[in-house]
Amino acid sequence: MAQRWLDEEQQRIWRTWLSVSELLPRVLDAQLQRDAGLSHAAYVVLAMLSEAPGRSRRMSDLARRANQSQSRLSHTVARLEERGWVRREPSPEDGRGNVAVLTDAGWEVVRSVAPGHVEAVRSALFDPLTDEQTRDLGNALQAVLDRLDPDHSLRLREGADAG
């Protein structure tokens, strides 16, 4: 079978995607560091907890929702615990495993940081696009996600509490 190379247009798009996938998190991290001394990964953990019933989630569920390995999440939560924004408790359902709980202080951080973060996302990702380009981007990303995760085992179920 002949090797399938990227054509010129695909190569341009691929390289653009690589740049965006590196620069966008950097821009969001910079905003969160400036406004709250937080990494984007830590903010996502706080946000996922803020949207959960009782502001708590099992660590395994939180890792999946925050797109972090169990090990990385454990380190992230430990740093948030040091700041008094999260605490870990035994799971009330079965006593096995832990849940992460957003403290009142953590909730205040989310409430104060979220508006600036939303503005940073809007400014970096959506403001440069027309409504049609936004829809096209959403459709294109959905098609790629469907290829990467055809059985939906690596992502949240549609309609689930996606946080």
Rank of each mutant, 00 (worst) to 15 (best):
M48I: 10
R26W: 15
P53C: 12
S50M: 08
S56M: 11
V44A: 02
S56N: 12
V45T: 08
A30E: 15
I13A: 05
A42L: 12
R15M: 08
Q11K: 03
Y43E: 10
V27Y: 07
V27L: 12
S39P: 04
R12Q: 12
V20M: 14
S19N: 15
E51D: 15
S56I: 07
A47C: 12
A47K: 01
A36K: 01
L46P: 00
A52P: 06
L18S: 05
S50N: 11
L38D: 02
V44R: 00
L23V: 15
E9A: 07
S21P: 06
L24D: 09
V27S: 11
Q10C: 02
R12V: 07
A36E: 08
L38C: 04
H40I: 11
A30Y: 09
Q11A: 11
P25E: 05
R55D: 08
L46C: 06
T16G: 10
M48Q: 13
R26T: 14
A36L: 06
S39G: 12
L46H: 03
L46W: 02
L23Q: 13
P25H: 02
T16F: 06
P53Y: 08
R55Q: 15
M48E: 15
Q33D: 15
Q33A: 14
L24N: 03
G37K: 10
G54Y: 10
L28D: 03
R55M: 11
R55G: 08
L49P: 03
P25I: 01
D29E: 09
A30W: 09
S56Q: 10
P25S: 03
I13G: 00
P53I: 08
S21I: 11
V45G: 00
